[in-house]
């Protein structure tokens, strides 16, 4: 599903963010990405959702390669994944329903399908009654559920979550984590960056730890083939 092959990322102002990082994420896997602030977690996620291009090396996502991908193909690849952020990134002037529908509208889905799908997604994240609410009328946990529902709108094969529980209390954190686990159980690959070591230790999921732009620990290093030529 995701393969990093000797990926280096250097930013003009802040310098080296990743140095020759290689790992492979299989389809249907749930993986934690941990490490201190500035370790390179967000850079890895940005490379996955194609907001950044590697300075060297290759990133492969769901069949697309960072080396050969053309700009016009980026939206098509992004539709295969859902991205969730710590700050939710909801449109404040749109209702919960509209926020979710937005993700479907941009891909050209019909009105009737959108209505049905939004209702189903709201049910899935446990917010059926909150459709007409504005994001500011919801709690942090509920807003993150909306963001997850939006991320799921296009039936992604991959969910990328950047500190999704970073702004939430313990109870909301458990709820969101459970939701991500349920999503993963249905076959979707999940990559979750987090600081929350307690959450990481409470499960048996694979953990990749970064420090100073390099992988310093991978709980399943034995299943990470280093060769770049294998299928993704």
């Amino acid at each position: 599903m995701i393969r990093f092959t000797r990926v280096t990322k250097e930013f003009p102002r802040t310098g080296l963010a990743l140095k020759e990082v290689s790992f492979h994420l299989a389809r249907g896997e749930f993986t934690f990405l941990t490490g201190p602030s500035g370790a390179g977690k967000s850079t890895i996620l940005k490379l996955i959702y194609l907001e950044e291009q590697p300075t060297a090396g290759e990133v492969k996502i769901a069949g697309a390669s960072s080396v050969t991908i053309r700009n016009k193909d980026v939206p098509r690849v992004r539709r295969k994944m859902g991205v969730v952020f710590q700050d939710f990134r909801l449109l404040e002037d749109r209702t919960v329903e509209e926020n979710i529908a937005f993700a479907l509208e941009v891909t050209g889905v019909g009105h009737t399908t959108i209505q049905l799908k939004v209702a189903r997604l709201l049910q899935l994240v446990g917010l059926s009654s909150k459709g007409p609410s504005l994001p500011r009328e919801l709690s942090g946990g509920e807003q993150q559920r909306v963001a997850i529902a939006r991320a799921l709108a296009n039936d992604p094969v991959l969910i990328v979550a950047d500190e999704p529980t970073g702004n939430l209390d313990e109870r909301a954190t458990r709820g969101i984590f459970q939701l991500l686990k349920d999503i993963n159980a249905s076959g979707t690959t999940v990559l979750m960056a987090t600081h929350d070591l307690e959450l990481v230790r409470s499960t048996q999921y694979r953990t990749i730890e970064l420090n100073h732009g390099q992988i310093v620990f991978d709980s399943r290093a034995d299943v990470t083939p280093p060769d770049a030529g294998a299928s993704v």
């Binding site: 939206p75 990134r89 941009v106 891909t107 939006r150």
Partner: peptide, 10 residues
């Protein structure tokens, strides 16, 4: 930025 993230074309 949100439109781009959810796969909207330019």
């Amino acid at each position: 930025s949100i439109m781009r993230l959810v796969g909207a074309t330019d």
